[in-house]
Design a binder for these strands. Structure first.
Length: 285
DNA sequence: ACAATATCCTGCGAGC
DNA sequence: TGCTCGCAGGATATTG
């Protein structure tokens, strides 16, 4: 998500949103009607872009904020899509075809920009969401207000990390993935961080002493920094020739058959999500 | 009060 | 070949 935010920042800050189109109005959570949402975003300039957890925050003129969450299958792209009619009229509403056709299948939400390009949300599963309101309104919504600290925030020191654990119970894997605990760590990076720290995903929080917490904290910062340095996970990969790119090249356990040392990766379901780990690593449980 | 589970969707690959 | 099943990068609501 950090990679996406940086890409958008370099590409669309200074542009103006002319209009908004969708074939899936359920994206609009605030305001909920397509007309009201369009009216909120249209005519406003894009002044800045940042990120909080996995939320992309697009700052608009007049003190407005556009929040887009890509959820599982979403991908924000800048490009061009042309509107095409559905195959037999009627059913399904408008569709967009990417230009060039190689990028951005599954675009369901389009922001027309004043330079002829568009910001499009490609989102196969349509779990994404979009909100537009005064900045203070957005930032006061529970999903923003309850967000945990940013893992790479320099102010998020070890003492802060350690404090998050006091009086809490549960499994470490679920804790790392809980956005209200720490923002922005999902299924992939929680597995990668735990492997890097040599900690089993099922380890109860109460089993983690200061030494393990220090190891976990360092692994978290290291893995996330490296992922950003390499351009993120799954963003543009695999490339045209089928080779993995970015962090995917160095992923150790997530959807791997073997770990870097050649041991078979094991999988189990934790809280409805798949956890990948190497049973040969030293680990607590 | 807490922790599993269901839910929102669609496409894809595996197995029969 | 064509069907059904399980699974997928998130987060919240609901259930037990």
């Amino acid at each position: 998500m950090e990679i996406i935010a940086r890409d958008l920042r370099a590409n669309i800050v200074g542009r103006k949103i002319l209009s908004v189109q969708t074939d899936w109005p359920k994206y609009f959570r605030l305001p909920k009607s397509s007309a009201a949402f369009g009216a909120c975003a249209a005519g406003k300039g894009i002044t800045a872009i940042d990120r909080r957890g996995k939320n992309i925050l697009i700052h608009l003129t007049a003190g407005y904020l556009l929040l887009i969450h890509q959820k599982i299958s979403g991908r924000l792209l800048v490009g061009n899509w042309r509107r095409v009619s559905p195959p037999d009229g009627g059913e399904g509403g408008p569709r967009w075809q990417p230009v060039p056709p190689s990028r951005g299948r599954f675009v369901h939400l389009v922001f027309d920009l004043d330079d002829g390009r568009q910001l499009g949300l490609s989102d196969l599963r349509k779990f994404g969401k979009a909100l537009c309101a005064k900045e203070a309104v957005i930032l006061n919504l529970p999903e923003m207000r309850n967000l945990g600290p940013e893992p790479l925030d320099p102010r998020f020191r070890f003492s802060c990390f350690q404090r998050l654990f006091t009086g809490r119970k549960g499994r470490i894997k679920q804790m790392l993935m809980n956005p209200n605990f720490i923002a922005g760590i999902g299924n992939i990076y929680s597995d990668e961080v735990l492997y890097a720290a040599g900690i089993h995903p099922l380890t109860p929080l109460t089993h983690l002493g200061e030494t393990e917490l220090r190891t976990l904290y360092d692994a978290m910062k290291r893995v996330l920094r490296k992922a950003i340095r390499l351009g993120g996970t799954g963003v543009e990969s695999p490339n045209a020739s089928g080779a993995e790119t970015g962090y995917d090249r160095v992923r150790t356990v997530y959807q791997r058959a073997v770990c870097p040392r050649g041991h078979a990766i094991e999988r189990l379901k934790i809280g409805g999500r798949s956890a990948h780990f190497c049973p040969a690593e030293k680990h607590l449980f």
